[in-house]
Design a protein around this nucleic acid. Sequence first.
DNA 1: TCTGGGGTCCTAGGACCC
DNA 2: TCTGGGGTCCTAGGACCC
Length: 431
Amino acid sequence: MGVNSEPLFALVDVNNFYVSCERAFNPHLEGKPVVVLSNNDGCAVSRSNEVKALGVKMAAPWFMLQDLAQQHGIIALSSNYTLYADMSNRVMTILRTYSPHVEVYSIDESFLDLSGMASQWPNMTQMGRAIKTQIQNWTALPVCVGIASTKTLAKMANHIAKKQPEFEGICDLSSMNPARIDNILSEIDVGEIWGIGRRISERLHAMGIASVQDLRETPSKAMREQFGVVVERTCNELRGISCIALETMTPPHQQIISSRSFGQRVNTLRELEEAVTLYVARATEKLRTQHAQCGALHVFVQTDRFKTDEPQYNNGRTIQLPSPSADLRVLNKAALWGLKKIFTPELRYKKAGVILMNLEPRKAMQGILFENGVSKQDSPALMNAMDAINKRYGRDTLRLGSSVGFGRWKARFDNKTFHYTTDWSELPKAF
DNA sequence: TCTGGGGTCCTAGGACCC
DNA sequence: TCTGGGGTCCTAGGACCC
C-alpha cells in the first residue's frame, strides 16, 4: 500500500480461463459451447458462457452431460495444464506493468495494489479498460476487472463486472455513488461473497440475511459470535474496512498432496501399493523442486462415496518420520507401511493419496569425497556423477567436500546418511 | 460403466508439563 | 472430602478457496 493513501485494490480475472486458453489457439471454438475436462475426462472444470447458460455446474460429471452435449453440440477438450500455466504467466507479466504490487492469487486471477495510483489515471475505470484491452490484444484472453477499497469488495466488483453487461467488464466501486452500491448489492445473494461458502450461506439465509447488502448491515460483532473471526473480517471488508492485506510474497507451501481417483475401482493391497508408490514419487518430485523436506507423511484411501448402497470406508494414517527427509525410498517405505495399517480387504477402493506434511527448507546435501590423490579436476567420472545428481535433484543438491583416503568415495546425504562406494555411477541411485 | 485435484485457515479437545 | 491454573503442542474436523 502506498504511503498516506487510502487502500485501493483491483481484482483481474480471466473469464472461463481454460476454455479461453483453448480458444486463443483455436478460433473455431469461438461462440460454441465448450468445456475443458479434468483428469481422466471425469468432470467439466471450465465452461464457456454458452455451456453455463445450459445450466452446467462447475465440476459436473461429464458422463451425466452426454444427452445435453449431444443436443447442443458441446465440444469437450482434455486439459492441457502446460498451456494454461504459460498463458497465465503472460497475463501476470502484463499486470505487473500496471502496479509494482501484484498478488497472484490463482492461475487465472490476481490482486493489484492501486493505492496512491489514482492520480496517474483520469479515473480508475479507464485503467481497468486499459488492462482489459491490452490483455485482449496481447494474449487473446478476455478478462474482467473489479476495483474497490478492500479485497473482498474488489472480488465483488469483479463479480458485478462479469454478470452485468452494462459494465462492459469493468466495475469500480470506489468511485460509485453509495446509494447505487446499496442498490446493486441488495440484488446479489450473500453466498456470492468471497469467503461465504455453501454452509455459512445456508445459515445466513435461515437468519434472514439473504443479500450482500443484508450482511453489510449486520453488526460484525454478532457475526463473530455466530461464525468466528473469519466471517467477522469479511463483514468489515464489505463495509470498506480493509482487513486482508495484499500478499506479494508467496510463502512456501505447507503441504504437498498427490492423489487420484481410479478409473476403475481396485480391491487388492497390491494395486493400492502401486498407486501410492506413484503418488509418493510425484509428491517427492515437487518436494525437491521446492528444495524442501518433510517431517511427516499422510497416506489415505477412500471407497466410492457415490455408491451409497455399498459399505463406505475412509481411512488414513500419518507417519512421523524419524527425521525430516526428501528421500524417495524413505518416504515410500513410510507410505507403504501406513497403507498396510489401514488396508481393509473386501472393499472396492476409488481413491488413494499421500500428503507430505511439516515441510521445511532442505539443507543441501554435501560432503562428496573422492579417492586419495584424485582431485576433482582430473576425475571426469566424479564430475559426471555430480552433474547427473545435480541435474536431477536441483543445483544445490551436492557440494564438493574434502578428500579422505579410504580408497573409496563417500557421499553424505542430509547430513546423516553415508554412502560408500568405489563406483561413482552408483551414487545417483543413492539419492 | 463413467463423479477433480489441489490448497489454506480456524477451532476444539486431549495430552502433557510445571 | 477437598481436588489449581496456566501454558504448549498436536490432531482431527470443518469451513473456505480455485
